[in-house]
């Protein structure tokens, strides 16, 4: 309804691209909570997106579940998977956890390819279109607000403590396993909801869309924007999410440009576009007329 009205003002192609961007932002914020805030490396985020997408699609198509309830179910299923992945984080740290999640993600993709209910390699078509740009950006705002509040809470400080120094956090009485697993669960829940939005937006799902390439894409959004910075994640996703469309002038060379862009940003801003910047502080300085102090690269 609202989208219908918007279509008169905005080019439908832009609506298409921006809606997809919004879905990516939600998914990336999920990873932000896991990797950016809690410091748990995940190379398998697309799997949660996929679990959510297939769950939501199957719910609405085969079980007749209402759309919003299906989104919730998508989140819950992904969260359950997140808990499953979170437990090994007790034993595995750093790169090793990343590698294990990479393996998990690939296994999930192979399972999607082999299951009957997901349509296998043929993919799942005929999902009703329920997602529109208004719902997506409502979800974006809601997610940003929720994660912002979470980061500012006692719980969020404990997550940051686990990231900074797990052993010190344990000594201070923080049960690091609980925080790591719950961060995985919440982050996956968010990704699962994003998956549900994705399924009811594109109306077609294929396992190849949820492989490691997508996982790395989302990780790149988060790191390139500035690991641990919520505005950074949004900026990083926006820049990289729009890049393939913007770089269309590069014709067949556009993905080469995309690769170069990734390398250049990392070399000149290793901490990410907004990494290490306190935006509130920068804003105050601008208002007062001072020059923001950029930490040395």
């Amino acid at each position: 309804m609202l989208e219908e009205a918007l279509r008169h003002f905005i080019n439908p192609y832009y609506i298409q691209v921006l809606t997809l961007l919004g879905i990516y932002i939600v998914a990336a914020i999920g990873l932000h909570l896991i990797t950016g805030v809690t410091g748990q490396l995940s190379f398998g985020h697309a799997a949660f997106l996929g679990i959510g997408a297939y769950t939501a699609a199957i719910c609405t198509m085969q079980l007749g579940v209402p759309y919003l309830l299906a989104l919730l179910a998508a989140g819950v299923m992904a969260a359950l998977a997140g808990v499953l992945v979170g437990f090994p984080s007790l034993r595995l740290t750093g790169d090793y956890l990343g590698i294990a999640t990479l393996g998990f993600g690939e296994i999930v993709r192979v399972i999607f390819t082999n299951l009957e209910i997901t349509g296998g390699a043929r993919g799942l078509a005929g999902i009703p279109r329920k997602t529109d740009i208004v719902i997506v950006y409502l979800a974006v705002v809601l997610t940003i607000w929720a994660v912002y509040r979470l980061q500012k809470s006692r719980y969020g400080r404990a997550l940051a403590a686990v990231r900074e120094d797990e052993i010190a956090a344990e000594c201070m009485g923080v049960n690091s396993l609980w925080y790591k697993v719950s961060a995985f669960a919440i982050g996956s829940f968010i990704a699962g909801v994003a998956g549900g939005l994705y399924a009811h937006f594109l109306q077609y799902l294929n396992p190849v869309d949820f492989g490691f390439a997508r996982s790395f894409e989302i990780l790149t959004f988060v790191v390139l924007g500035g690991l641990g910075s919520l505005p950074g994640v949004i900026l990083g996703t926006t820049v990289l999410g729009l890049a393939p469309e913007i770089l269309r002038f590069g014709a067949v060379y556009r993905m080469m440009l995309y690769g170069v862009l990734m390398v250049l940003v990392m070399i000149f801003r290793p901490q990410g576009l907004l990494g290490g910047l306190n935006l509130a502080q920068v804003w105050r300085r601008i208002v007062r007329g001072g020059r923001p102090r950029v930490p040395a690269a």
């Binding site: 080019n11 192609y13 298409q16 691209v17 594109l202 294929n206 190849v208 067949v252 993905m255």
Partner: peptide, 20 residues
């Protein structure tokens, strides 16, 4: 002519762009 680079999510945008 628009190229979707063999990617599903981009193909949707390209279709929309062609129509636009």
């Amino acid at each position: 002519v628009e190229d979707h680079g063999s990617k599903h999510s981009e193909a949707a945008s390209v279709t929309q762009k062609l129509i636009t």
